[in-house]
């Protein structure tokens, strides 16, 4: 009985939250005009969510590529097809690892920062003050941060994949000695632009929208206390990760079935 009641209250809570988020998303879209007419607002957020995430994305991408190279070589070698290493590295990065890992890193690096910033602005009544000055906080604070994240994410994912492929190339061609030409030509023969590259970009765009929306929402919705902000940051990271993985599953099942 108690368990059922608990389940019910959790379910109601989740539906409420989803409704709030959907309404909030709509508001952001309605108030997005300023983000593009006053581009410097969005450029500032591009700096904070994009440029400042650059280092972690590039380094992680390189390491993921190096590991993929080592593991891929070890497995492919058993079947005598170590030439296809380029294919394996490229496909796994473009289709899955690039968007997903970059998305997870982006959520914990930039998403949490956005939540913290908006949350602290709420705690210090900056949002209310702005509202009293007849400036909509959604248009001035939330929307530029949202669009900054949405624009950054696919670019970061592309850089992650590029660095990963470079890492795979380092291991395969430079250290192991796979033929350079075979590495690239096998890759190019197997990777399709529309099917693999474009689908990966679409995924990263979707993750960008999801993470940015969750981050600005949690910041805007947080309880205006120190504890509330810290909880909101945790929620941003956790629900972004869940959203990315769930979205990834759904999108993969639509994009890559019935080959």
């Amino acid at each position: 009985m108690g368990g059922l009641r608990k389940l019910g209250s959790v379910a109601i809570e989740v539906v409420w939250q989803l409704g709030f988020i959907a309404r909030f998303f709509w508001l952001i879209l309605v108030y997005s005009g300023q983000s593009f007419t006053r581009l410097n607002l969005t450029i500032r957020e591009l700096y904070f969510s994009g440029v400042l995430s650059l280092l972690i994305i590039l380094v992680s991408g390189l390491f993921v590529g190096l590991v993929l190279g080592l593991q891929g070589y070890e497995i492919l070698q058993r079947y005598g097809s170590s030439d296809s290493m380029g294919t394996m590295v490229a496909l796994s990065l473009l289709r899955e690892l690039g968007p997903v890992v970059a998305g997870l890193l982006f959520a914990s690096r930039a998403g949490s920062a956005v939540t913290a910033e908006i949350g602290l602005m709420k705690v210090t009544e900056q949002l209310k003050a702005m509202d009293m000055m007849a400036v909509s906080p959604i248009a001035r604070v939330v929307a530029p941060r949202f669009w900054g994240g949405v624009i950054s994410m696919p670019l970061l994912a592309a850089m992650f994949s590029t660095m990963g492929i470079f890492g795979g190339w380092l291991i395969g061609v430079v250290f192991i000695g796979i033929d350079d030409g075979a590495f690239w030509s096998q890759m190019q023969a197997a990777v399709d632009f529309r099917y693999d590259v474009l689908n990966g970009v679409i995924k990263s765009c979707a993750f960008g929208v999801a993470v940015s929306l969750i981050a600005v929402f949690q910041g805007y919705d947080c309880v205006p206390t120190a504890e509330g902000v810290s909880r909101a940051i945790t929620r941003t990271v956790v629900s972004s990760a869940l959203a990315i993985l769930a979205l990834d599953f759904v999108m993969t099942s639509f994009m890559f079935r019935g080959l």
């Binding site: 009544e125 509202d131 009293m132 000055m133 909509s136």
Partner: peptide
């Protein structure tokens, strides 16, 4: 409402300055 608020000024308890 926003038009009216432009003619109002409110000083918040701790100033609420934009910290950035």
């Amino acid at each position: 409402l926003y038009a009216m608020r432009r003619r109002m000024g409110m000083l918040f308890q701790f100033g609420a300055l934009f910290t950035d």
